[in-house]
Design a protein around this nucleic acid. Structure first.
Lengths: 201, 201
DNA sequence: GACTCGGTGTCGCATAAGCAACAGTCTGAG
DNA sequence: CTCAGACTGTTGCTTATGCGACACCGAGTC
């Protein structure tokens, strides 16, 4: 879909990490983070104890390593910023990356609900927001030009937009009948454009 | 469930074989047996080519090896012949093994439909029936006493019962709303007891 | 014929995963 | 206190898998 030859790691590694994460997710959803034991994770995943510790130092580390991937996912999705598939003919410009990010979240909704839900692990939610911030800062070359400026420092706008984005995602994950990824992406983009509106005052 | 310490094979082996079988099943259902290439199987399964050939000599071998397990599954299920969990208090005696066999089939219904369906691979269907026959012969010590005799040679009764059983399974797999495993097991058992009825004539 | 081309099957080497054993920590029961 | 049990990390060794390379074989195609 979006990742092409981006340095393939060993398939065995991807497999076991996926098994461990799936098992972990299921157990946390069932019993809560604190109650989950490493021994339960590896049993559920069908993975050896030694193998678990070759990848993670603890269950918290498993969580963090997953969160770290958010940044990588954002980066890989950002490739499609030039992808003109969205609203190519429309007068509204909506970068495809925004949609693909929400699509990614929709696919992994159970993960994100675990991390960002109301009773979720707030420390992890902070980590995720940090990833978003760092992404925006990494790609400030892109967003500084795309996102309208209103005189406020770029750093401040970055932080504001990151927080706004995470807030929207949290709201989205709470909806009974959530709007489509494209729909929410459009609204999100409109919101970010309000800076331009202020500008015109 | 039914297998306890029965000589655990390497988890990695079980995993890759399951991945290969799942991929194979999906591809055969989609394109038919002949059209499926080994290279497609391994790609779908995410397994290396060399690994495939370490387990199977060809796609036919994959199929056969799976069929061979039918016998093992029957054997492992037959352990529960003494298990009195079914109809323990009823006047009807229904060996638990009969139910567990049908439960097994229900769980793997997609597999069995592939093998035994009308447009299925008849050679494999024959293999499966052979497995059932061999099972009944292996455990003739059990079934010779449980299944009523009517004077006909044991060999003939074995063949008749095996064919009957496979026929029932085929019918079961065709039903839109199939009866429960317990239900079909009860009927099957009743049918096998008709020999007793003939006896009383 | 020679020639790609796509698929098959096999090899040796590198590495991830499994396993069994171990010591360390904590908690609760006696 | 002491012991037992459960869980955690860690370690060497074994084994299965991944990988790349290779030869092989049809079926088209020039």
């Amino acid at each position: 879909m979006s990742q092409k030859p981006a340095s393939k790691p060993d398939p065995r590694v991807r497999r076991t990490q996926k098994m461990l994460r799936d098992a972990f997710l299921e157990l946390v959803l069932e019993h809560g983070f604190e109650m989950v034991r490493v021994s339960e994770i590896i049993e559920q995943a069908g993975v050896n104890r030694a193998t678990f510790y070759r990848h993670y130092r603890s269950k918290r580390d498993l969580l963090r390593s997953w969160t770290r991937e958010v940044g990588a996912l954002l980066d890989s999705g950002a490739i499609s910023l030039e992808d003109p598939r969205v609203n190519a003919g429309s007068d509204e410009y909506l970068p495809a990356v925004v949609i693909s990010i929400f699509e990614h979240i929709a696919v992994h909704a159970s993960y994100y609900r675990l991390m960002l839900g109301r009773q979720g692990l707030s420390s992890i939610a902070n980590d995720i927001e940090s990833q978003v911030i760092q992404f925006l800062e990494r790609r400030s070359d892109l967003f500084a030009t795309i996102l309208p400026a209103n005189g406020a420092p770029l750093g401040m706008r970055t932080r504001a937009y990151a927080a706004e984005f995470v807030g929207i995602v949290k709201w989205w994950l709470e909806q009974e009948v959530p709007p489509s990824a494209a729909q929410i992406a459009g609204w999100t983009w409109d919101l970010s454009s309000r800076l331009e509106f202020y500008n015109e005052l």
